[in-house]
């Protein structure tokens, strides 16, 4: 185990703060999809860079945990490295790039391709937790809309999409109804990943540090992407396969190879891709 940072508590946050956050998490688990306000602390990483996810991870992580951190599906993107190092320094826990080995997976913008299992915890970094924010900027009003399940305005937006573009044009952070009750933003994952939220065996926790909200999808909970019966929810697809591992079912990144229109497609989930080639 590596030497941890002197002068700071295990996983940085003091135990009182961790308890406060764990209480918020418990409430969030008890009311799936409901945004629980919490006393978000000022972290040594910038707001918008995962402070919510980091606080959630810091509050639940123990010495026996194995942590994986991904950004855009990859373990070696700079912010993922930075967050993984933060926990290596402050908690000294084991880290991994392997989805199957991890007990906690903190993520920004993706859900791993490898199916999650019971006992694993996904921690999502959330920039804007409020699904109604673009329709109604006022917190006082959106709270009432949630309380009364007044979600018609979201369909009005989708109606407009179809009327003007022939299809729903939301591609990421695609709103879902959790457990037939609360409208929820799944964080800016591509809608491709929405189906992985539904009835997942893993516990899924969402932390928004700047906006001071935590919400959760407990294991085996129904998560339905909003749609119309005659315009059912559908996900991205590619004509290409991954140039490295040949996968035709994973989410692909487009990589520009020259300035003459040359491009190739590779798996966004680097661990998944590597596991198929090695």
């Amino acid at each position: 185990m590596t030497q941890t940072l002197a002068g700071y508590n295990f996983a940085y946050l003091d135990e009182q703060t961790k308890r406060m956050i764990r209480r918020a998490i418990l409430k969030a688990v008890a009311i799936p999809g409901y945004q629980v306000p919490f006393g978000s602390r000022e972290m040594p990483l910038p707001y918008g860079w995962g402070t919510g996810g980091i606080q959630v991870t810091a509050s639940i992580i123990g010495r026996a945990d194995v942590l994986k951190v991904i950004d855009q599906g990859a373990d070696d993107t700079t912010n993922a490295i930075s967050i993984r190092r933060f926990f290596a320094r402050t908690a000294g826990v084991a880290t991994t790039e392997r989805t199957v080995e991890a007990t906690i997976i903190q993520t920004r913008h993706r859900i791993p391709e490898t199916p999650l299992r019971a006992g694993q915890i996904m921690v999502y970094q959330v920039p804007i937790p409020e699904p109604l924010r673009w329709l109604e900027p006022r917190e006082t009003e959106t709270r009432t809309m949630h309380a009364l399940s007044e979600y018609g305005a979201m369909h009005v937006r989708f109606y407009e999409d179809i009327a003007h573009h022939g299809r729903i044009t939301t591609t990421y952070d695609y709103p879902v109804i959790v457990n037939d009750r609360y409208l929820m933003r799944p964080s800016p994952i591509p809608k491709f990943d929405n189906q992985k939220l539904d009835m997942s065996p893993a516990l899924q926790l969402f932390g928004a540090g700047r906006e001071k909200r935590i919400y959760a999808v407990p294991p085996f909970t129904k998560v339905k992407s909003l749609d119309f019966h005659d315009h059912p929810f559908s996900v991205e697809s590619w004509d290409a396969a991954c140039s490295l591992c040949g996968s035709t079912t994973s989410y692909l990144d487009e990589v520009l190879t020259d300035d003459q229109g040359g491009r190739m497609f590779v798996c966004s989930d680097t661990d998944y891709c590597r596991s198929r080639t090695s």
């Binding site: 018609g152 369909h155 407009e160 009327a163 019966h229 005659d230």
Partner: peptide, 18 residues
């Protein structure tokens, strides 16, 4: 749009067929 204006109340009470 005008269509969305008329349709809003239907969607608010659960209409889900575009």
């Amino acid at each position: 749009s005008a269509g969305a204006n008329v349709g809003e109340r239907l969607m608010a009470i659960g209409a889900r067929h575009y």
